[in-house]
Design a protein around this nucleic acid. Sequence first.
DNA 1: AAACAGTGTTTTGCTAAGTGAAACATTGCG
DNA 2: CGCAATGTTTCACTTAGCAAAACACTGTTT
Lengths: 255, 255
Amino acid sequence: MSYTITSVDRAIDLLEALAEHPDIGVTRLAELIGSTKSHAFRLLHTLEQRGYVLKDPATRNYRLGYRSLYVGERARDQASLIKTAQPIMDGLAQATGENVHLVVREQARSICIALKQSQAHLRLYAEVGRHGPLHAGGGSTLLLAHAPKEIQAAVLDGPLPSFTPATVTEAGVLREQLTRIRQQGYHVALEDLDDGAFSIAAPVRNHRGEVIASISVAGPITRLDAVTTDRHRHLAIEAANDISRRLGFVDQVPT
Amino acid sequence: MSYTITSVDRAIDLLEALAEHPDIGVTRLAELIGSTKSHAFRLLHTLEQRGYVLKDPATRNYRLGYRSLYVGERARDQASLIKTAQPIMDGLAQATGENVHLVVREQARSICIALKQSQAHLRLYAEVGRHGPLHAGGGSTLLLAHAPKEIQAAVLDGPLPSFTPATVTEAGVLREQLTRIRQQGYHVALEDLDDGAFSIAAPVRNHRGEVIASISVAGPITRLDAVTTDRHRHLAIEAANDISRRLGFVDQVPT
DNA sequence: AAACAGTGTTTTGCTAAGTGAAACATTGCG
DNA sequence: CGCAATGTTTCACTTAGCAAAACACTGTTT
């Protein structure tokens, strides 16, 4: 038995298609969501009425409406994790000069929920709200390492797509990697999700000690050597621990 | 013939109910949206699957999910008006020490799409994404003044709710006010929407000279006198003109 | 200016998705 | 332990939602 309401699912398909492809028309949208023009038209009309979609009357193209900002702002306001983390992420970005990401796990995928972008001209492109895999990327793989066994099983038994030549696609190898991550308490990922990029991640824990998010420092590997690796690792762990403490975590064995 | 898809409308009802009331359960949500528990349950399940709603497994309460951030961010990215206005709004907030709002009109209502909050401890509460009336509030009434005749007719013929004793609720008086706003090119609203608050608004024009938004400076009337009124008015008009120029507007008669 | 192609909008009839009611399961409190 | 309230699941019914098709509009080509 499925509780999914198909019409709502399709409306979300359309919103997300518009998020990726702004300023397009009814026909193009229908194609993108695999539907008919009349269906796309009705979805657009419904979302436009509520302010989530805007229609340019001159071109008859659609893009996301301003009401989307409202829900986004409220989501951010409600997320105490983001509020707690943001000032610490600011400091970490300042100290490292690289991107800082706050990533959480949703079921069997990851999502970046806050981001501090590096000021450097060469920087890793990243987006808040973007869903990603769990078996690649510093913060994501660390979250997989600390996920419940059934989530790990679901990921390990499922397809492990390759993003770069460095992506781990062998379940056995990934299992060992996850064990190692749990033991050492951080993860250094090199070019496993994006070519030429590194990501050094540490776990954020809640008051019960459960890993609920990861903090990661990410950038181009050309700016990474043994010294900066160690420094970023240290700063990331420190920042993650700081956030964890503010969330009520009491670390019994100081590091 | 209505093109509204009721199921999608209801899903939005639920999302917006969660935006206003985080961390509540199925029964409460069903009450808030005027529905049944089974319906609310299915809506929540659908939205949770897509990441727009998060369920706390311990308390079985729901709140907005992180995927909402994605759509909000993309809406902001796509809105060139917001991108153009934001640095100018920053400067205006710095110069005035008060809130600065960017407001647009959607059909017969207003919506604040960008906000620079005053650093003062006493400040006007405001929210991005919040819908409001067109006949009250500095920026909103200015937008009504420049709206198409049919929009004006719709507002003037409809109910004009009173928010404070200073709210204009008489259609004839409002009509005169709108004429005056168009003539003088700005609007000073005193306590017409919020008790104890002022709002000084100026029009933002696009490359065709059409008024597409308003910039307003807002705060408590205790910080307003003849000198500050004149100063804020000047700075708001200047900022609005600056944004308009960046949007391609060429002002033939310099002010 | 006329014809054509493509897009957007509207209508219609059919069916299965969506709904509420009711039952069942779970949880927390007295 | 019993009860009340909440959350979850099931079932049967109805109409909402859908695709197909037709129509209207717009921009381009001849």
